[in-house]
Design a protein around this nucleic acid. Structure first.
Lengths: 152, 152
DNA sequence: GATAAACCCTATCGAGTCTGTGGGGATTAC
DNA sequence: GTAATCCCCACAGACTCGATAGGGTTTATC
């Protein structure tokens, strides 16, 4: 389950990718307003993303946040890992944060683990294969036909 | 995130698929012992799976549970939906249980929704494409080489 | 240097979910 | 009639999640 926290974090990162001038920054109040995000909550999220190395910040008046590297080199999968933890539906199926189940005698032969490993790999392929740049560019563009069809 | 509840439910269903004699049943105490599952918790889970139409039951002495239809015709995806809710990481990306986000002005143009729809589709392809029969058969067989490699 | 704007940090609260248990009631084989 | 079993409800304890409060620190500007 993608948390509200991750949703806010992705939205703020997309705003930065789309609107931050080269060398400049965007402040929390501006990002909060642009993304309809509670400011204090956003503050905690951005601080965390900074600690994970995705953002740089400038303090003091006229300060704010900026991407630590080009949006093309930030994977959505890594952002979600930083915001919500491992992608895998279950810890024993995670590559980046493996932890065995306490009640599973033999992980290699566990059917649940194998299936969830498949699911994890499929998720990772999509999320690690999508850059923040692609993600930000996708916002607001023409909706795909199949999505339109579902909106009845 | 796959809950403990879903894990227990899948394990119990696999036990039924593998060990339930034709026309017979298996009792909660037996399933609980075979799957290392707290009996009262399992009781609630099986009752729920019965209400969803995956199980039949016989009450009274020598009673128990049995699959309501052949394991080949039960999709793991449907079991997980019954146990944990929608597969999609976010309700606005669900096909079977769509609910719009309150804070999203225009769902069709939402980048998060589009990406999570992709993720949902990939998960559904795997989980709806795997039958309980395949799942049960996979348990205990030789582990794949790549999984072995990770166990150092 | 005073001021205001902004980032940094910690604590905490309320609501909800998840795991697991307890105590019965109803049904059925023997 | 008895014991085993499914059915049902209530609830407790731990945890997570969203959100807020209240400061402390840094810096541009006047």
């Amino acid at each position: 389950m993608l948390t509200q926290r991750a949703k806010y974090g992705l939205r703020a990162m997309a705003l930065l990718a789309a609107n931050c001038p080269p060398g400049g920054t965007i402040s929390i109040p501006d990002l909060a307003q642009g993304g309809h995000i509670p400011p204090k909550f956003l503050e905690a999220i951005l601080l965390d993303l900074k600690r994970h190395g995705f953002l740089t910040s400038r303090r003091g008046k006229a300060g704010g946040y900026a991407l630590a590297r080009p949006a093309e080199r930030i994977a959505i999968g890594d952002l979600i890992r930083a915001l919500d933890g491992p992608l895998a539906p279950i810890p024993c199926a995670s590559l980046t944060a493996y932890r065995p189940c306490t009640d599973c005698a033999d992980p290699p032969s566990c059917a649940i683990r194998r299936l969830m490993r498949e699911v994890r790999d499929a998720m990772a392929q999509i999320l690690d294969g999508t850059s923040l740049a692609q993600f930000a560019a996708s916002a607001g563009t023409e909706p795909a036909a199949d999505i339109m069809a579902e909106m009845r």
